[in-house]
Design a protein around this nucleic acid. Structure first.
Length: 495
RNA sequence: GGCCCCAUCGUCUAGCGGUUAGGACACGGCCCUCUCAAGGCUGAAGCCCGGGUUCAAUUCCCGGUGGGGUCACCA
């Protein structure tokens, strides 16, 4: 039988990294075996499910490239299917109606907890014949003392006892299914052969196996993944920052870097750290997945993102940067308060997208490539090249635009003025080197004043590259203007 | 509390009875250098504890400790 796996998120929140990693492992497993990867939206909780979450989940998966091989299905559209199964279960006596009130259940639980016992349903309605199905829930009749054995390819053999499982609810009082029921019904219906999910769902596996039995179905295989924890070693939650995967898009992470980072949480292939997506597909196996939970480490993700930025061709990186900028404003809503507030707003996109500008835009991206860890850092490096106006960092000015810097600045300015256009980068470099030699200064004494004059900061791509790109992006006249301004800030007179 | 899972540097991990316990992130130092990076070299840092099994345990078994998950008409 061919492999069919699925990702079944519930739209009660944004797609977070835990669900994302599970989706990735399912996807890799499917691709590795030439099987199908499906997406199912588990929106049985009609109170908490939101359209917005569904959209962001599908968008997030799409961003990573983890598309469903079949159109995603929505559980909220399948109530008739579930209804038929409920009828069957009640008729065969595998399940029964229960009209115990919420209040009774609550006090029962409270008593049990107070007495130090495990809270569980007391089976009051199990053998009652006179329960009015209207407004009643349906519970599974869980057998008394049986052993449920799960053969997990990651965790090995795990045994559960049915004594530890109470008669759980399959149908809510409004007739809609609970998660426990809907998962089983749909995994069966979709022909899912292997369920790969987080091990927080391990305790519900025996319940679902029981349900398969009650329905007379062969259960699929189950594989559980170790959890991803926050830095405090607690289950990942809102307070661990970036709730939504798409926040990482806003923060300038590459989808392939996200996948690479996530695949290494719980999985390894010898000493290899950097993987392309096709390498992941080729090398990924469930057998190589570990059992211990992993702490999410943003610093390593950042490093890996830099690696992937450097792996891309300049053209691909440029496209990735522009794609990130296009989504930036709408993605801002995924950022946590405080976090990412410092992400500069997108520059004039139309200008960046104009085909005529592509050469210098690519040159700019290439200049930022080796020094950026995220696409946002590219934006930061790029700022002086994109805006007509320039803000001078007072600290940079104070430190670099000293009286000693006047001489080299004057020389560079008059050289630029005297040229019809600037030579190529090598030519600019040659000029600056010979200038510094003739002035008896180190190259730094020339480069830094020019850098601060042109960019307002002490940090930028190599000075010849900076000059060269600037000439094309803002024009030679603006370059002269900025050099003049730098000279003035250094206390020099107008030239 | 019941049930279940887990345990190698701070973090991610390799290891599948005999290794100077390897790699990566982060951290320190050095080199390169017009800034920042990147890159290169290098340093510090780890097998939770106790019993077994064995000629030999990080590795296998048991117990403890510690951590995590889960016990809803949430998923």
């Amino acid at each position: 039988m061919s492999v069919r796996v699925r990702c079944a998120p519930s739209p009660t929140g944004y797609l977070h990294v835990g669900v994302t990693r599970t989706a990735l492992f399912n996807y890799l497993h499917a691709r590795h075996h030439g099987g199908a990867f499906l997406v199912r939206i588990e929106d049985t909780d009609r109170e908490r499910s939101k359209e917005e979450f569904t959209r962001s989940i599908l968008e997030g998966l799409e961003w990573l490239g983890l598309q469903s091989d079949e159109p995603p299905i929505f559980q909220s559209e399948r109530t008739e299917y579930y209804r038929g199964l409920f009828r069957q279960l009640v008729e065969t006596g595998a399940a029964y109606h229960c009209d115990c009130s919420k209040e009774r259940l609550d006090t029962l639980r409270a008593e049990q907890t107070a007495a130090g016992r495990t809270p569980r349903y007391d089976n009051r309605c199990r053998d009652r014949k006179n329960v009015n199905p209207e407004g009643a829930v349906i519970r599974l009749k869980v057998p008394d003392s049986e052993r449920i054995t799960v053969e997990d390819p990651i965790y090995g053999t795990i045994d559960f006892k049915t004594e530890d499982i109470d008669d759980f609810v399959l149908a809510k009082s409004d007739g809609t299914p609970t998660y426990q029921f809907a998962v089983v019904a749909d995994d069966y219906d979709q022909g899912v052969t292997l369920i790969i999910r987080g091990n927080d769902l391990l305790p519900s596996t025996p319940k679902q196996v029981l349900l398969y039995r009650a329905l007379g179905w062969e259960p699929p295989r189950f594989a559980h993944l170790p959890m991803i924890l926050g830095t405090d070693k607690q289950k990942l939650s809102k307070r661990h920052g970036a709730t939504s995967l798409l926040a990482y898009r806003a923060m300038g992470y590459l989808p392939q870097a996200m996948c690479n980072y996530l695949v290494r949480l719980g999985w390894a292939h010898g000493d290899q750290e950097v993987f392309t997506l096709s390498e992941m597909i080729e090398k990924f196996t469930l057998e190589a997945v570990g059992k211990a939970p992993a702490v999410f480490n943003p610093e390593k993700l950042l490093w890996l993102n830099g690696e992937h930025i450097r792996l891309l061709s300049v053209s691909d990186l440029t496209d990735a940067w522009l794609a990130h900028l296009k989504c930036l404003e709408q993605d801002r809503r995924y950022l946590e308060e405080g976090r990412g507030a410092d992400i500069p707003s997108a520059p004039d996109l139309n200008r960046l997208l104009a085909p005529d500008n592509r050469p210098w835009v690519e040159a700019l991206v290439a200049a930022c490539q080796e020094r950026s860890g995220t696409l946002v850092q590219i934006t930061e490096y790029a700022q002086p090249f994109l805006s007509e106006t320039l803000e001078y960092d007072p600290k940079a000015v104070a430190k670099v635009l000293t009286p000693e810097s006047r001489k080299p600045l004057e020389q560079v300015l008059s050289w630029v003025r005297g040229s019809l256009s600037l030579p190529d980068e090598a030519g600019i470099h040659d000029f600056l080197v010979s200038l510094s030699e003739s002035l008896g200064l180190g190259l730094g004494k020339v480069a830094q004043p020019v850098r601060v004059s042109l960019t307002g900061r002490t940090v930028s791509p190599p000075i010849n590259t900076t000059l060269s790109i600037l000439e094309k992006s803002i024009g030679k006249a603006k370059v002269e203007e900025r050099l003049q301004r730098g000279l003035e800030l250094a206390g020099g007179a107008s030239l």
